[in-house]
Design a protein around this nucleic acid. Structure first.
Lengths: 152, 152
DNA sequence: CGTAATCCCAAGCGTGTCACTCGGATTAAT
DNA sequence: ATTAATCCGAGTGACACGCTTGGGATTACG
């Protein structure tokens, strides 16, 4: 039930890209420094993100990465599916809800499978319900509250 | 976001124990044959289940395993936590909801962490909401429907 | 009492993934 | 030309997975 560092770092990086959305490309070096990550490792994560169209790259000096779509059009689920693969607890939970469990010789097998199907559903609902925009908005709120406290 | 065969096989086996609840100990050999699993591998899964009190063992001939509690008192979550470890997507999502994210220098880190906390919550709610009893009841319903179709 | 059926325990093992690192090639702004 | 970036592929040590193997201890049953 784990998310690896791919999903974790990748999501952090995407959130940072979203924070700078509209300000031109952000180089991985910046992200790596801000988050304390390995730049080379981030590169590997961005290759599939680019292939999936979630980010666009600008090569050469002053280059970097941009979001491929608006922050509100990118969900946590989009990012995780690219970096972590399908979000089903086990493979057979991908094939939709039980397709008539009568054909199954072992009812227990299908019933336990239904547990994984249910779990798959709530996981997807959750991650697909959170956009980068939402994370950004909250980050800015938190920042505003921090500043407020500082001046009081 | 995967469940390994430990959790999968373990849950299947526990469901089968629940199906025979009240009929004396069930040997692993039976379970292994019914589900097409390795008996020796199942043994390894039952060691922690026994230590956790989810099953009781009866040694010697005619021995086997029994549920440690009533089927309705054992949830899928109970089984998975024993066999798979904590169900949090990443470790830091275990420490409850964000404890005042103002103390965090990097707001993004805490916000992304909140994603994992939310995911953790829905996963736990789901698996803790399904008991072995429920799986059994459904298995028997499916069986009944199968018999019905056969005689029509 | 002996034997077979069980659980119990420990070790090993091949495969794959994780989380990186390293070295370089390519592209483009200054 | 230099520098700042993305790209690409290879390598690597540690660890977990999914078992298998081999044996020991315990107990019902004949």
């Amino acid at each position: 039930m784990n998310v690896t560092t791919k999903g974790h770092y990748g999501l952090m990086a995407m959130a940072e890209l979203a924070m700078h959305h509209g300000e031109g490309p952000v180089p991985l070096k910046t992200i790596a420094e801000n988050q304390g990550l390995s730049e080379h490792y981030l590169e590997q994560l961005f290759a599939p993100l680019r292939r999936a169209g979630l980010v666009k790259s600008v090569r050469g000096a002053q280059g970097g990465y941009l979001l491929g779509r608006e922050p509100k059009e990118i969900t946590v689920g989009d990012v995780l599916r690219v970096l972590e693969g399908p979000l089903a607890p086990i493979e057979c939970a991908l094939d939709g809800p039980l397709e008539e469990l009568e054909h199954c010789t072992n009812p227990l097998h299908c019933l336990v499978r239904d547990v994984w199907v249910r779990l798959h559903r709530v996981i997807e609902q959750t991650v697909d319900g959170i956009t980068l925009q939402e994370i950004c908005d909250r980050a800015r709120e938190a920042q505003a509250r921090r500043n407020l406290m500082f001046y009081i």
